[in-house]
Simulated assay, not measured.
Amino acid sequence: MYSILLFLHSLGRWAVLGGLLYGMSRAYQGWFGRKPFTPHDNTTRHTVATIAHVQLMLGYALYFVSPLLRDFHLRDAVHEPGTLFFGVQHVAAMTVAIIVLTIGSALAKRQSTSEVQFRTMALWFTAALLLILLAIPWPFSPFASRPYFRLPH
């Protein structure tokens, strides 16, 4: 089960990033182009938030079955940067990022004009993306290096 969750979570990263970039593209184009907020934009807003929530749930499931975190204790993790990253920093930053994204999505849905809807979506999705980019264990990360894709084994 662990390797399947790890594979799905690794794949989900790209779905979240792609969805956020697409959603931000629509939001910035709509905001600066003074376009109407269409049903497609609303579906994009909702779909990006849904994909992010699924990814977060996969991450939580992975957190609880990960051999890396099976015997996690914060006092010991201070000496193990990878364990500290996945045990505290990654899960906390990703949770905050999805909360930010969710708030932005909910606020954008409730705005009265297209311009404010797009602006709200653009700014909150951008903040969420920045948090996500900081918390991903990229291959070049000094905190915890992981490959771009994890295959099930």
Results as ranks from 00 to 15, higher is better:
residue 1 M to D: 14
residue 1 M to C: 10
residue 2 Y to L: 15
residue 3 S to T: 13
residue 4 I to S: 15
residue 4 I to C: 12
residue 6 L to Q: 10
residue 7 F to P: 01
residue 7 F to Q: 06
residue 8 L to Y: 08
residue 9 H to Y: 09
residue 11 L to C: 06
residue 12 G to I: 04
residue 12 G to N: 03
residue 13 R to L: 10
residue 13 R to M: 14
residue 16 V to Q: 11
residue 16 V to A: 08
residue 16 V to C: 06
residue 16 V to Y: 03
residue 17 L to F: 04
residue 20 L to R: 03
residue 20 L to W: 00
residue 20 L to N: 00
residue 21 L to W: 06
residue 21 L to H: 01
residue 22 Y to C: 09
residue 25 S to N: 12
residue 26 R to M: 07
residue 28 Y to H: 14
residue 29 Q to L: 03
residue 31 W to N: 14
residue 32 F to Y: 10
residue 32 F to H: 08
residue 34 R to S: 15
residue 35 K to W: 13
residue 36 P to M: 11
residue 39 P to H: 04
residue 41 D to I: 07
residue 44 T to S: 02
residue 46 H to C: 08
residue 46 H to W: 09
residue 47 T to Y: 00
residue 47 T to I: 00
residue 48 V to C: 01
residue 49 A to S: 15
residue 50 T to G: 15
residue 51 I to W: 11
residue 52 A to R: 04
residue 52 A to T: 06
residue 52 A to Y: 02
residue 55 Q to H: 09
residue 57 M to C: 12
residue 57 M to F: 13
residue 59 G to D: 05
residue 61 A to L: 02
residue 61 A to F: 13
residue 62 L to D: 10
residue 63 Y to C: 04
residue 63 Y to L: 02
residue 64 F to H: 07
residue 66 S to A: 03
residue 67 P to F: 02
residue 68 L to G: 15
residue 68 L to T: 13
residue 69 L to M: 01
residue 69 L to F: 01
residue 71 D to Q: 11
residue 72 F to K: 05
residue 72 F to W: 14
residue 72 F to I: 04
residue 73 H to P: 06
residue 73 H to N: 07
residue 76 D to E: 15
residue 76 D to Q: 14
residue 78 V to M: 07
residue 78 V to R: 05
residue 78 V to T: 05
residue 79 H to T: 07
residue 81 P to L: 05
residue 84 L to M: 02
residue 85 F to C: 08
residue 86 F to A: 04
residue 88 V to F: 11
residue 89 Q to F: 15
residue 90 H to E: 05
residue 90 H to N: 01
residue 91 V to Y: 14
residue 92 A to E: 11
residue 92 A to N: 14
residue 93 A to E: 11
residue 95 T to I: 02
residue 96 V to D: 01
residue 100 V to S: 04
residue 103 I to S: 08
residue 104 G to T: 03
residue 104 G to V: 11
residue 104 G to K: 02
residue 104 G to Q: 04
residue 106 A to T: 11
residue 109 K to P: 14
residue 110 R to E: 06
residue 112 S to R: 14
residue 112 S to C: 14
residue 115 E to P: 12
residue 115 E to M: 15
residue 117 Q to C: 03
residue 118 F to S: 00
residue 124 W to P: 01
residue 125 F to D: 01
residue 127 A to M: 10
residue 129 L to F: 10
residue 130 L to N: 07
residue 131 L to W: 06
residue 133 L to Q: 00
residue 135 A to G: 06
residue 135 A to E: 13
residue 135 A to V: 07
residue 137 P to W: 09
residue 137 P to A: 08
residue 139 P to F: 03
residue 140 F to G: 10
residue 140 F to I: 09
residue 140 F to V: 13
residue 142 P to L: 05
residue 142 P to F: 06
residue 144 A to F: 09
residue 144 A to C: 13
residue 145 S to R: 15
residue 148 Y to L: 12
residue 148 Y to S: 05
residue 150 R to F: 07
